[in-house]
């Protein structure tokens, strides 16, 4: 045992020196790449059963074509999945090439056996995808939000209206080409909100433009009267 010890210790010592010198060389280590989480609740068999292709992502994701979405969603609903969320993404300025401009992800979750699956649909400008409202009523507001903020149209949605932005806002704010910063915000019929004038209105020294309607602050103009109930009651 004793003669073995120094023999063991020497290579270990060398290795240790070599390791410390190499690890000291890169002062800025690159961040570790994202690896898929340990599949404790594996959805791979489910994806295979539905005949979908698995997307290589950190979260369990399956790729679906717009034409196939209804069938896949119905099968997942029959398995007991619920619709948690609908995510719309505009990939037009993404660093890596993507198949199409938009992606709509349906976040599905099984409330009993706790599997989670994202259904990813790729879409180009002008393409539509079927609404999941006939399958899950949760899709109602979620798809309205994606429509409102990204301008993706869901066919078969019973009430596809704006849900978050003002009625007369032009454009879809979460698109990457939506103007930001000092660019005036555009509304219908040529009205616009000038950022500088808006800030001036905030101080109270100037009438400014205090809302998206672009009217004078109440009390400054002569033609401003308090709002009245329209004939026939509120709409």
């Amino acid at each position: 045992m004793d003669p073995l010890k120094p023999a063991d210790a020497k290579p270990m010592g060398r290795e240790g020196v070599a390791q410390s010198s190499t690890s000291a060389a890169p002062v800025i280590p690159s961040p570790a790449p994202v690896t898929p989480a340990a599949p404790s609740r594996d959805v791979a068999p489910l994806i295979a059963e539905l005949g979908l292709t698995e997307d290589h992502a950190a979260e369990p994701t399956a790729l679906v074509t717009p034409g196939d979405l209804h069938r896949a969603a119905q099968a997942l609903k029959d398995h007991g999945f619920m619709l948690m969320d609908t995510v719309g993404i505009d990939y037009s300025t993404y660093t890596e090439p993507r198949p199409k401009r938009f992606a709509v992800l349906h976040n599905l979750y099984h409330p009993r056996d706790h599997r989670r699956l994202f259904l990813r649909v790729w879409l180009d400008d002008g393409e539509t995808l079927p609404s999941l409202y006939p399958i899950w009523r949760a899709a109602n507001y979620l798809e309205r939000e994606v429509y409102d903020l990204l301008g993706v149209t869901f066919t078969g949605h019973p009430d596809l209206r704006k849900v978050l932005t003002p009625d007369d806002l032009e454009g879809h704010p979460l698109r990457k080409d939506f103007p930001l910063g000092e660019t005036p915000t555009l509304f219908r019929d040529g009205r616009h909100l000038d950022p500088a004038a808006f800030r001036a209105g905030l101080t109270g020294r100037d009438a400014g433009l205090t809302g998206y309607r672009g009217e004078l602050r109440r009390g400054r103009g002569e033609d401003r009267l308090p709002p009245v109930m329209p004939e026939g009651g509120p709409k």
């Binding site: 704006k162 009625d167 219908r188 709002p227 329209p230 509120p234 709409k235």
Partner: peptide, 15 residues
């Protein structure tokens, strides 16, 4: 109509 759009200005996608 004080806070709402005039009916002729309403679009199908308005709230």
């Amino acid at each position: 109509p004080g806070g709402t759009l005039a009916p002729e200005q309403m679009q199908p996608d308005h709230q």
